[in-house]
């Protein structure tokens, strides 16, 4: 397979300082993302899933340098973004766009749709001014809105339509990678399906690459080629879609999948109910971050950090960070609830 690497993340860390004490010094860090690595190839959709506090959104923001990463390399088409000046970075911003959960919050309410799109194109100098209007109307049609809606204000649109505007804005600068940060999470099911279909169509038409950040595993299964499962700032498992859903290896992935209610009353399945809450990312558990809630945890899990690895019975691109993948698969280790 001659897949072209588009984005490569290596050893990414994002620590946020916590101020405290008498003099307001940094007393601790929130380890939002703690040493993660992955690669995204051209034209594919990679999803990051996890519960709140797992660092999935922080990862997206760190890639775009919306917040400067504490450590690590982010390579876009072979160029290390961390080494770029603000000015050079701007050129790459054009190639990497982000769509947020609430597009309303990121659109100036006093600007019409046309001026929002026009501004985006102007900053990135994608088209001469006299050609922009035609392009704006074309973009609106592309995302399923009508050209005459260009002169309306954001509040005149419904949630689903606003998300379409957000997509049109991202598309207006001809990006290669779009990061969708919970882009469909706030939408109702019927509207969500419309937007998901739109994203899929656009991907085909423009050969887009998506990094899809979501907590909804249904959406993730539908849209992704490969999936990254995160927990407390660490990657627990990476796999192609089929492996992850049909052959999950990490106890956390299994628990996560079993926790989601299925819209089928006949499917009564064994549910793994995890005990307790997600620990604080300020002082995350030692060893494997999941050991405080894992039904298989041993002494080793408390002390040793498991590396991502592939074992027998896993596809080559499937990796999980667990000391006991083999033992759990063979039934040698039993869960301890």
């Amino acid at each position: 397979m001659a897949k072209q690497e588009l984005l490569k993340v290596e050893g990414l860390k994002q620590y946020f300082p916590i101020k405290g004490g008498l003099l307001g010094r940094t007393t601790n860090h929130v380890k939002a993302v703690d040493d993660i690595s992955f690669t995204i190839y051209e034209g594919e959709t990679v999803s990051i899933v996890g519960e709140s506090g797992c660092g999935k959104s922080t990862t997206g923001r760190a890639i775009l340098r919306l917040e400067e990463p504490t450590e690590g390399v982010v390579e876009f088409k072979g160029v290390n973004l961390a080494g770029l000046s603000k000015r050079e970075m701007r050129k790459y911003r054009k190639d990497m766009q982000i769509i947020f959960q609430d597009p309303y919050a990121s659109i100036n309410p006093r600007q019409t749709v046309a001026s929002v799109l026009n501004e985006a194109m102007e900053i990135q100098k994608v088209l001469p001014a006299n050609k922009r209007r035609a392009r704006i109307e074309e973009l609106l049609e592309t995302v399923g809105l009508l050209p005459y809606q260009a002169d309306r204000f954001p509040h005149e649109f419904s949630g689903g339509q606003r998300q379409r505007i957000g997509i049109a804005r991202a598309l207006s600068v001809n990006p290669e990678l779009i990061i969708c940060d919970e882009a469909v999470s706030a939408l109702d099911v019927s509207i969500q399906a419309q937007v998901l279909n739109l994203l899929e169509d656009l991907q085909q038409e423009y050969n887009l690459t998506y990094l899809f950040i979501s907590h909804d595993l249904g959406v993730v299964r539908h849209i992704s080629d490969r999936i990254i499962v995160m927990y407390l700032g660490k990657i627990m498992e990476i796999a192609d879609k089929e492996s992850l859903f049909e052959n999950p290896k990490h106890p956390y992935t299994k628990a996560l999948l079993s926790a989601i209610p299925v819209p089928d009353p006949d499917k009564k399945k064994e549910r793994i109910v995890l005990k307790g809450d997600v620990p604080s990312p300020i002082n995350p558990p030692t060893g494997c971050r999941f050991h405080t809630r894992c039904p298989f945890a041993t002494e080793k899990c408390v002390t040793d950090v498991p590396e991502l690895r592939t074992t027998a019975g896993m596809k080559e691109n499937h990796q999980a960070a667990c000391h006991y993948i083999e033992e759990i698969a063979s039934g040698e280790m039993q869960p301890n609830y």
Partner: peptide, 11 residues
């Protein structure tokens, strides 16, 4: 509504 719902348990 049921057909709009992306599911994690089936392809």
């Amino acid at each position: 509504l049921l057909n709009s719902l992306p599911r994690h348990d089936i392809e």
